[in-house]
Design a binder for these strands. Structure first.
Length: 469
RNA sequence: GCCCCGAUGGUGUAGUGGCCUAUCAUGCAGCCCUGUCGAGGCUGCGACCCGGGUUCAAAUCCCGGUCGGGGCGCCA
């Protein structure tokens, strides 16, 4: 399941199960102590088979009554599924299963012939969600019991993959000279307008949960950090109820000085390219686990196809044209809605940028060049989106670095510049042109894992009706 | 906020007014067998979301509620 060759032994075990699986031939006869969950316990007479699973794999423990203390044998033999136990014994080659004549013999497998052991905890039965059951459990039931759901192989694999994706993204950005920061999640004012914030009390002062690190990562860049990134939570009090929205989500953000929108689009596509390439090269075993599950559900396998860079750029103007050609009704200046994205996705099924949105649709901090107008005269901006198929992954752009323009933008969007002095003050004393983006981590994971719902790839999702567990 | 759909043992399901003291799988309990291999065999346990209505008769039809799913909107 995962590489544990470098894991040190602990108080509870001398080896991980993964270490025994991957080095079985060399370990035959060696005494080991392993610990794990009993996936199944079979046998009610003089012998007993326990399929023991830890976070690195599973192996069969073989118990013979005559080899153990009676009380130990009884305790383990009568253990319920998912009870935890530790066992000590010698590694042995497992007897090969009977195979139909003519079929190839399976690769060798190993087991532990138990000499002593201890039942650590007993799992209550029945389990609210079976870990290895051949039944398709509803998402809601699974999320109510996420601690058990997570024990399922493909679910576990998704979250290990998530960790890898963040690791590869981090490594890539660091290699491009970015430094990791953390911005405050408790903020004083509705920082951007638009979206609804969750109010809270900060001692005696009303405050909000942050909807985005946007203004703070810009301040870090204005402060001279040049290139920063942050992987952190964002909170939005929107009553949406879709497969791709949550009220708390992890946003992967960057901001870089002396860059325009095209420059940071380059950072983004290079990072995604690196992530896909690394997953394809190093984590195909996780994708295989996911695909085994998908196969059992009659779903097409996911394929990690490393995307070619540069990604296509389909400007907002072109996007509008594609939507119209596809029969969609859209006016210049309208948002590109979900069903419009379906039309665009028919032509561009993979990653594609949509740059140069109308300024009227972008927040006050997005930069525009006065001379850049659409054919019918509308003011364009340097804001962009990155979509995969119909789904928006990223929103970003070059930021407005001119103090006076910023204040004008605020006013023209109905916001009071006085509420934003903590931010605009950062632009008073010389500001570099800069750009950045924010990427939805879970949305990227949906693409990579084929998950049809963000909730699948978020450990404990927070949506309109779920605050627990 | 709008539209559509759904709710049956622990879990996932069958069910379209009487054939339902409700199907199947999985699970759970027990027994048999036992170096099993998704082990197998046998026996048993366990359910119609809540409230009202229609009907001789409701899991099934109607109304309300609750919860869930899908789509849309809203949404940097």
């Amino acid at each position: 399941m995962r590489d544990s060759d470098n894991w040190a032994s602990t108080f509870y075990r001398s080896h991980t199960i993964g270490q025994i699986i991957s080095n079985g031939e060399d370990m035959i006869g060696q005494e080991v102590t392993i610990a794990g969950y009993a996936e199944s316990v079979r046998g009610r007479g003089g012998i007993c088979f326990v399929m023991l699973r830890d976070g690195t794999g599973k192996i069969q423990a073989f118990l013979k009554r005559e080899n153990l203390e009676d009380s130990t044998f009884e305790a383990i033999q009568s253990a319920s599924r998912e009870s935890t136990m530790v066992v000590t014994g010698k590694v042995a080659k497992k007897r090969p299963p009977k195979t139909p004549e003519g079929s190839p013999s399976p690769p060798p497998e190993y087991e532990v012939t138990v000499a002593s052991g201890e039942l650590l905890t007993t799992a209550h039965a029945p389990l609210p969600v079976g870990v290895i059951d051949d039944v398709n459990v509803g998402l809601d039931t699974r999320l109510d019991n996420r601690h058990l759901d997570l024990r399922r192989r493909h679910v576990n694999a998704m979250f290990i993959l998530r960790s890898k994706v963040l690791q590869y993204g981090r490594e890539h950005l660091i290699q491009e000279g970015f430094n990791e920061i953390n911005s405050p999640k408790i903020i004083a004012s509705a920082s951007e307008g638009g979206t609804n914030l969750f109010p809270m009390m900060y001692f005696d002062t009303p405050a909000y949960l942050s909807q985005s690190p946007q203004l703070y990562k810009q301040l870090a860049v204005l402060g001279g950090l040049e290139r920063v990134f942050e992987i952190g939570p964002a909170f939005r009090a929107e009553k949406h109820d879709t497969y791709r929205h949550l009220n708390e989500f992890v946003s992967f953000d960057i901001e870089a000085a002396w860059c325009d929108d095209e420059d940071v689009m380059g950072v983004l596509e290079r990072m995604i390219h690196t992530i896909w390439k690394s997953v394809a090269e190093q984590d195909s075993h996780l994708i295989e686990i996911i695909n085994e599950y998908r196969d059992s559900q009659d779903l097409d396998p996911v394929v990690v196809e490393v995307p070619k860079i540069p990604f296509p750029r389909i400007s907002y103007d072109e996007a509008v044209k594609i939507v119209r050609e596809g029969g969609g009704a859209i006016e210049w200046g309208d948002d590109i809605e979900s069903h419009h994205c379906d039309l665009i996705a028919e032509k561009h099924p993979g990653f594609h940028f949509i740059p140069r949105w109308p300024m009227s649709m972008k927040p006050f901090y997005i930069h525009h060049k006065e001379q850049e107008k659409s054919a019918d005269g509308g003011q364009l901006s340097r804001g962009f989106d990155l979509n995969y198929g119909r789904d928006e992954m990223t929103s970003g752009g070059q930021r407005e670095h001119r103090f006076e323009v910023l204040e004008n933008n605020l006013r023209s969007m109905g916001l009071d510049p006085n509420d934003f002095t903590f931010y605009t003050d950062g632009f008073r004393y010389g500001a570099p042109p800069h750009a950045g983006w924010g990427l939805g981590v879970a949305r990227l994971l949906m693409v990579l894992t084929g998950a049809g719902n963000v909730r699948e790839v978020v450990l404990f999702p927070r949506d309109r009706s779920r605050v627990t567990p």
